[in-house]
């Protein structure tokens, strides 16, 4: 059996930085299990309702999208009005 590990770079934007000050703007998450966007959000301790959308390779992706080795994902928070 091969022990696979997954390394994902996560960029935190907008009010997520303010709401989760323990997170840096750029986090690296490692997992020995397959990981979806939702799973990643949970790993970081972020309320899923505070992620407006996730952007992977410059495309908005659904939160059940599986992540892959060395990918970079942006978690975008809701903007505060106009």
């Amino acid at each position: 059996m091969i022990n696979m590990s997954l390394k994902v770079t996560v960029n935190i934007t907008g009010c997520l930085k303010e709401l989760y000050p323990h997170l840096s703007e750029r986090e690296v998450v490692e997992s020995d299990q397959p990981l979806s966007v939702s799973g990643l959000i949970g790993e970081l301790g972020i309320s899923p309702r505070m992620v407006l959308f996730a952007v992977l390779n410059e495309r908005i992706v659904p939160k059940d999208r599986q992540l892959f080795e060395d990918c970079e994902i942006n978690l975008v928070s809701p903007p505060a009005g106009g």
Binding site: N11, I12, T13, G14, E25, R26, L52, F53, V55, E58, N74, V76, P78, P79, A80, G81, G82
Partner: peptide, 16 residues
Amino acid sequence: GKPGFKTWTPFGTASI
């Protein structure tokens, strides 16, 4: 260079 740069402009405040 900010990660939020490209995702902010397309929809502006209406994205909420």
